[in-house]
């Protein structure tokens, strides 16, 4: 590792140095390919973000891939219903590592306005590890761009080695998650216990 001060000093002299880690992360963060995957209303805003006015290609993420095999980022744009969830998890499992998930909109975060529905999943993070949440119903395209930048910052700080290295560099970390099955009244199981633990109920008595 080059000392940061020395690096800056050399930069002034016209010599650029970098580390393998920085180079690797820079490459990854500048070409995040999202999965072309729209569920509901938020998908329209996702499309709007890729169109002329908002232009997601400024961030290297305009290559929407219809196939999960070629994508790095799953933008869960819209309400995840219980009928749709097995397919969502399957698509995630089919994506190659390293992969990231953005939960776009209130529905993907918690069920949103449709939380009371019998067929609505109360948050996609019950089954998938979510990296960035975007609140809003639907979030504006700017919010999606902000989420993308947040994700890029996260990628930038990934360590190649050591304890804190990300999941895709740990051989024993899970890359696929179990797909729930349709039950008679609900999905079985109704949540991934290893992934999601309910937040405690705050009681003020």
């Amino acid at each position: 590792m080059i000392d940061e001060g020395l690096q800056n000093e050399m930069k002034k002299q016209g010599v650029f140095t970098t580390s393998l880690q920085d180079l690797y992360n820079w490459g990854r963060k500048s070409s995040v390919w999202p999965l072309q995957f729209g569920l509901a209303c938020c998908a329209i805003e996702m499309i709007a973000a890729s169109m002329a006015r908002f232009d997601i290609s400024r961030f290297g993420a305009e290559v929407f891939r219809p196939s999960p095999r070629q994508a790095d980022l799953m933008i869960v744009a819209g309400t995840v219903t219980k009928k749709m969830l097995p397919q969502v998890v399957r698509l995630y499992n089919q994506m190659p590592e390293p992969k990231y998930v953005i939960a776009m909109g209130a529905c993907a975060i918690s069920g949103g306005p449709f939380k009371e529905g019998y067929n609505v999943l109360k948050g996609v993070d019950r089954y998938l590890p979510v990296d960035v949440h975007i609140p809003g119903c639907p979030p504006r395209p700017e919010a999606l761009l902000h989420a993308l930048m947040t994700l890029q910052k996260k990628i930038e700080t990934d360590a190649l080695t050591g304890e804190k290295r990300p999941r895709h560099l740990q051989a024993d970390a899970p890359s696929e998650f179990p797909i729930p099955e349709f039950g008679e009244h609900d999905l079985v199981p109704s949540k991934n216990e290893q992934l999601w633990k309910p937040a405690p109920v705050v009681r003020n008595e």
Binding site: G78, T81, K83, N119
Partner: peptide
């Protein structure tokens, strides 16, 4: 069908008339 069945009708039956407009 049914992959986006969000139970709009059921929710609206538990909501006031005004509350259904955003849905």
């Amino acid at each position: 069908f049914g992959y986006l069945h969000r139970n709009h009708e059921k929710i609206a039956e538990g909501t006031s008339y005004l509350g259904s407009i955003p849905y």
